[in-house]
Design a protein around this nucleic acid. Structure first.
Lengths: 243, 243
DNA sequence: CCTCTTAGTGCACGAGTGTTCACAATCTGT
DNA sequence: ACAGATTGTGAACACTCGTGCACTAAGAGG
């Protein structure tokens, strides 16, 4: 294990660490590409295996390798364990989350009203639809049996809430709010968002029954989320700042 | 399988179904008691195994049987599969959920203010503390890989929200609200409740580090939940009924 | 060109899994 | 008291699992 770890570290350092040190352009082009492809195949295989509504826990190294068209031992050339594969997926997932937040932020700067809510929900469902497997992964692993993954996702969620807090702090209505209260409000938004994501995923599960996502269930979820957010927004002007 | 199923059905019918048919009091006292005990031991063993922050998925029939002090094959005398064991646990868990709702309802009938919120949160944390293993089970199995359990819990959650909706419908402030809007509000409450439960469980996880639940983390969670609920309550008078 | 590094292979191992089956012990109603 | 039902046992099955080790093919750089 120690051998493999140092082994890996050196590889990773070479791949994108020491590249700037040498100016050779096409160095190891084809081999590095090959490596990237199998790694992606492993990640995709894991996502696909979980998509059938099986959690990350019930996911074996061998099945992932098999689905990626690779022998089990080859897995270790890319990840030390399934945990590291999971962490890589978390990294990818939070990246899409962050891109979502960025899009929402740039969409309507400082608008702050019913339009903002409708727009935000729209962006949310669009992202969930487009990156369903990543969101499903996070939704599952969030309450997974795997302690490493669970804590990673929980801490990323907290970070996300904090970012959202500093974001909404710029809205004029929230000028005088305490940071604690902003965190509270952001937490409420994030919780509602998570619940909405859960509902969407459940409604669009690729399990038995009519394949695909029943459109009116989706619509009901969206309007419910919008109303909940509007209700919360309605309370904001009447909140008395707490010490 | 068919054999075992019919076999079981007849047993269950005898245990609490046909008792009223015969007036013999002490009938099969010791044997039925023995059965009840091992069944409980299996359920407890499962709960305990999951408590170390391992989900229901990573839980094997053999380990449960071993922890219950019983040979694997004896498991089948009580449950046809792990799924049924899980469903039994769901049944138990929703029972405690319902008792919680009942307590909250009888606590302050028709009060409806800040006192109601504080009281409700207090009842919530008390119940989570007292039945932590059941709540942890639901929190895990809610996003579990096991489709049967997941759907069972999701549908029970919806039912719970509906009950809460008809409950709060009695509050004077909500007299004119649409049923749809009441459902929306109840859903928001339930989602906040679930998020709070998650946070409490995470803060009081019996994993590594200082055993037991850090008290100030608990306090922060409680005050955050109270503020969120108060914020929501603040919006209620300003909600315009939607068609 | 020749050597070194590296992604991927094949085989083997010990451990753990769900499930079946025949059997033992004990409780129960007649 | 006896026959039947019922709970629990023990050995065995056919798997799957993670992991270690020796090996091969091929790309890369001096």
């Amino acid at each position: 294990m120690v051998n493999r770890r140092t082994h890996h570290a050196s590889v990773a350092r070479r791949v994108h660490g020491s590249r700037p040190l040498t100016h050779r352009a096409g160095e190891r082009r084809s081999q590095v590409e090959r490596r990237r492809q199998t790694r992606r195949a492993l990640l995709d295989a894991a996502l696909e295996q979980m998509d059938g509504s099986y959690g990350f826990d019930s996911l074996s190294l061998r099945r992932v390798a098999r689905a990626a068209g690779v022998v089990p031992t080859a897995f270790y050339r890319h990840f030390d364990s399934m945990d590291e594969l999971g962490l890589a997926l978390v990294e990818e997932s939070v990246a899409t989350l962050r891109s979502m937040l960025r899009e929402a932020r740039e969409g309507a700067p400082g608008e702050g009203g019913t339009g903002l809510i409708a727009r935000s929900v729209e962006i949310l469902v669009a992202h969930v639809r487009e990156h369903r497997r990543h969101f499903a992964f996070m939704a599952h692993a969030r309450a997974s049996g795997n302690a490493v993954l669970r804590h990673a996702i929980r801490s990323e969620t907290r970070l996300f809430a904090s970012e959202l807090a500093t974001d909404i702090a710029r809205l004029p209505i929230l000028r005088d709010w305490t940071t604690a209260d902003l965190q509270m409000l952001a937490g409420l938004f994030v919780e509602t968002m998570i619940a909405t994501i859960d509902a969407i995923l459940e409604a669009s599960a690729p399990g038995p029954g009519p394949e695909g996502l029943s459109p009116d269930a989706q619509a009901r979820i969206v309007t419910q989320a919008e109303r909940q957010l509007r209700l919360i927004a309605l309370a904001i002007p009447h909140w008395r700042i707490s010490p």
